[in-house]
């Protein structure tokens, strides 16, 4: 089960940090504030779901560096970047790396709250997708190498005869292994297996 969403906020200006916390608390979010990005990175875990609101310009680790670090950790936390001075190249870079949004200070509080809500949803989805992929991967891993290779051929749409020809295995053996694979992964059709396989592949190499 996923944890409650948490809103992490990072700003080197303590007053801005306090004001943002005050705003988010009125919306009954769980808020944690950090005066620098390094402290935040020490606190977050891979299973966290929620959103990070960070200032772009900060001494030592800035918003861009924080984002890069999060991507590397494959964190599910969504990122909202806030800046006092945005230019096009920075905006493009930040969005390309998967930030949910980039807001220019001073921002409209209503819009920020909306973005936060959206970000939390995105984060939760990301977490759930990851969760499902991991489960699918677990199922797929129960298959033997022979079963997996036959199923891959089947998923790509080859008829049994062709598979038999390609892998030099008899039609009956193929049929038996197909049935075994469907049973092990608890799916009913080759179509459902294809979905399972694709989900599993998101979680890593099979």
């Amino acid at each position: 089960m996923t944890a409650n969403p948490v809103i992490y906020i990072v700003d080197d200006d303590p007053v801005v940090l306090a004001s943002l916390e005050a705003l988010l608390l009125t919306q009954q979010f769980e808020v944690r504030s950090f005066s620098n990005a390094q402290l935040l990175l020490e606190k977050i875990r891979p299973t966290d779901v929620g959103c990070i609101i960070t200032d772009l310009q900060m001494p030592e680790m800035d918003g861009i560096a924080l984002q890069a670090n999060l991507v590397e950790r494959a964190s599910h936390l969504s990122l909202i970047m806030v800046t006092g001075y945005a230019n096009v190249p920075v905006t493009v870079e930040v969005m390309k790396r998967g930030a949910v949004s980039l807001l220019e200070k001073p921002y409209d509080a209503i819009q920020l709250i909306a973005e936060v809500k959206r970000a939390v949803t995105v984060s939760r989805q990301s977490f759930e997708i990851a969760q499902q992929s991991r489960e699918a991967l677990e199922k797929i891993k129960q298959l033997t190498a022979e079963e997996l290779s036959i199923m891959e051929c089947a998923v790509s749409g080859l008829p049994n005869k062709a598979i038999s020809h390609n892998l030099a295995i008899s039609g009956r053996t193929i049929d038996r292994r197909r049935q075994s694979a469907l049973r092990k992964t608890n799916v009913n059709s080759i179509g459902e297996f294809a979905v399972l396989l694709a989900t599993a592949k998101k979680a890593g190499e099979i």
């Binding site: 200006d13 007053v15 801005v16 306090a18 004001s19 943002l20 005050a22 705003l23 608390l25 009125t26 310009q57 806030v82 800046t83 006092g84 001075y85 220019e104 200070k105 001073p106 921002y107 409209d108 509080a109 209503i110």
Partner: peptide, 18 residues
């Protein structure tokens, strides 16, 4: 400068909305 000025302004906006 715009960053400098935006800091208190965004704090004001946040507090006001809060």
């Amino acid at each position: 400068i715009s960053h400098e000025l935006n800091q208190p302004l965004s704090a004001i906006a946040n507090f006001a909305k809060a």
